[in-house]
């Protein structure tokens, strides 16, 4: 069963890759938009610092953070909720439920394949963005830090995907989940550190920002490269793992209960 799931996943992955290749302009346009927000932030923060502003982090930290943020956002993002909700609402989910494989396999394959393709387009853009600021980029050389970064990214991606399944599954109960999805995106956007580094947020917000889950999607993976304090990082890894387990459990509970309702009441 597990081997069969892996084979289906690989087949779906290949198909997704072929599909993405058909829409040549879609990826560059999307990745250009992904780079735009951090680019604007980068320019204005550096501009503000040049004008005398004094944020609580160094210019190097800000520059490195804002250059990396688009890569991290891309790799930890998920877009399944909308499609999942639509398939539940329209009854298209039936086409998956009568197949002998997990309903979320196609979404996971789409997520992974699209991220690989996005990264291929995004990296050159990030390199171009980084060139003018290369003097202020401060990245660690130790491979262990990069491994930790990769782990934190994978955890962040798993958490976002699980939250997406939770939001999408709400369509088992509600007709329209777009507003909920908008709120979730808003929370992620602001509290994850995707627009503003959490380190420059007002100091009073510190305790709240450290405990809420969204920070472990974007800000924490970047911190694994920028924060030198090992104890801080260990605590962060543990907190992130706890949030991921919670998100996975929530996704499982909501999906199973939703499916039971679907089987019980129909589409």
């Amino acid at each position: 069963m597990t081997r069969s799931t892996a084979l289906v996943f690989l087949a779906l992955l290949r198909q997704e890759a072929r599909l993405i290749a058909q829409y040549r302009w879609w990826l560059p346009a999307m990745q250009a938009s992904v780079v735009t927000v951090p680019l604007i932030s980068l320019l204005v923060w550096r501009g503000a610092v040049a004008h005398g502003a004094e944020p609580p982090v160094t210019r190097d930290y800000l520059t490195t953070y804002l250059v990396l943020v688009s890569v991290v956002t891309t790799l930890t993002s998920s877009w399944t909720a909308k499609f999942l909700a639509e398939s539940i609402r329209s009854g298209r989910l039936d086409a998956w439920l009568v197949r002998p494989c997990s309903t979320h396999l196609a979404a996971a394959a789409n997520n992974v394949a699209e991220k690989v393709a996005k990264l291929a387009v995004l990296l050159p853009l990030v390199v171009v963005l980084a060139i003018p600021f290369h003097d202020d980029l401060d990245l660690p050389a130790h491979p262990g830090r990069w491994l930790l970064f990769a782990w934190a990214l994978a955890m962040g991606a798993a958490m976002t995907f699980s939250l997406d399944v939770v939001v999408g599954s709400l369509a088992f109960w509600w007709q329209d989940v777009t507003a909920v999805d908008r709120f979730r995106h808003l929370a992620t956007l602001f509290l994850s550190g995707a627009v503003v580094p959490l380190a420059v947020m007002p100091a009073d917000w510190g305790p709240f920002l450290r405990t809420q889950p969204f920070g472990y999607v974007v800000a924490f993976p970047i911190r694994t490269l920028l924060e030198p304090d090992a104890a801080d990082l260990r605590a962060g890894v543990a907190a992130q793992a706890a949030w991921v387990v919670l998100a996975l459990a929530a996704a499982r509970v909501v999906w199973v209960r939703g499916l039971r309702r679907y089987h019980g009441a129909g589409a």
Binding site: Y23, W25, W26, A29, M30, A32, S33, T36, V37, I40
Partner: peptide, 12 residues
């Protein structure tokens, strides 16, 4: 074909 994300660029 499929230039839809250009709108996200414009909004950003």
């Amino acid at each position: 074909q499929s230039i839809q994300p250009i709108n996200d660029l414009a909004a950003a």
